[in-house]
């Protein structure tokens, strides 16, 4: 009886192996092969050339800008994410449903559109363009524009991760902390944060990967000034367009390493979250 019901669920052997081969083939062809080829191309002319290419002034400036942009936008999206999740999970207010939906907006809008939106607002002919020019503030084709665009793209990550977590957790532990005399900050640091830390870190890791890798939105607002407003992804494109394959792939290899590190950290955090889930 047991056997027969199991047998019913079992597809013929050739189907199983067929599907498995297909999946492996697709992953190999479209993921592993390109990834390997990035490194292959990057090192095509040896270590020396690789090291030279990632230490050109333009490359170094792109790396620094990328690090700077993510260093600014990460804390801001964490603050935004935690506040938004807090508001949505802990309070009832009119427009809560709308806010929850709007948080997802950056996911559904094409990044190029998001970039254009900032040009429309802050560009020379944009709404605030004249005022900004009058006060000699540069946003578009400058670092602030890149930060804005990155913030727009990355702000949902932390909030999306925390909202369900905080809703599931409920507010009883926090209320218990208050009833024992803790102030709101003490409550947050000692009770809320330890409970959401793995989810928060998970959001931060995803957010960081996106902040460093964002191309579309940043491309529109950056103006592609080599050595000034090129982030790493933009630098990859620029060098590639100059037929400098080693330079392009060397820069791309850095982004790839970032991706792999992200993946590993992400798996670790997922595992930790599983361990720390409340037991029922």
């Amino acid at each position: 009886m047991h056997n027969s019901s199991k047998a019913a669920l079992q597809d013929p052997t050739w189907v199983r192996y067929g599907l498995m081969t297909l999946a492996l083939l697709v992953i190999g062809l479209f993921l592993c092969l390109p990834l390997a080829s990035i490194f292959f191309q990057a090192f095509a002319k040896g270590w020396q050339a690789y090291a030279e290419q990632i230490s050109t002034p333009d490359a170094v400036s792109a790396i620094c800008l990328t690090l700077l942009v993510s260093a600014i936008s990460l804390p801001l999206s964490v603050v935004f994410g935690v506040s938004a999740a807090w508001a949505i999970a802990r309070f009832d207010f009119p427009g809560k449903g709308l806010l929850t939906t709007l948080i997802d907006l950056p996911f559904s809008v094409s990044p190029v559109t998001a970039g254009l939106l900032f040009v429309l607002l802050f560009g020379a002919h944009g709404w605030f363009g004249e005022w900004l020019q009058a006060h000699d503030i540069k946003i578009i084709f400058a670092v602030p524009g890149i930060v804005f665009a990155t913030l727009f793209i990355t702000c949902p990550f932390v909030a999306r991760e925390l909202i369900p977590l905080m809703q599931e957790m409920g507010s009883e532990e926090e209320e218990a902390a208050l009833s024992m005399g803790a102030g709101p900050w003490t409550m947050f640091w000692r009770v809320t944060l330890p409970n959401i830390k793995w989810g928060l870190l998970y959001g931060v890791v995803l957010c960081n990967a996106r902040a460093m890798g964002e191309f579309g939105a940043v491309s529109v607002v950056s103006g592609h000034i080599a050595g000034l407003t090129n982030t790493l992804p933009l630098h990859v494109e620029a060098t590639y367009n100059e037929y400098n394959a080693v330079g392009a792939f060397a820069a791309a290899s850095l982004l790839t390493v970032l991706a792999v590190v992200t993946l590993v950290v992400k798996s670790y955090l997922e595992w930790q979250q599983q361990l720390n889930r409340p037991h029922n």
Binding site: E172, E173, E175, A176, P194, N195, P278
Partner: peptide, 8 residues
């Protein structure tokens, strides 16, 4: 609290 709310 009804469900104890111990700090987990």
């Amino acid at each position: 609290f009804q469900h104890y709310a111990l700090f987990r």
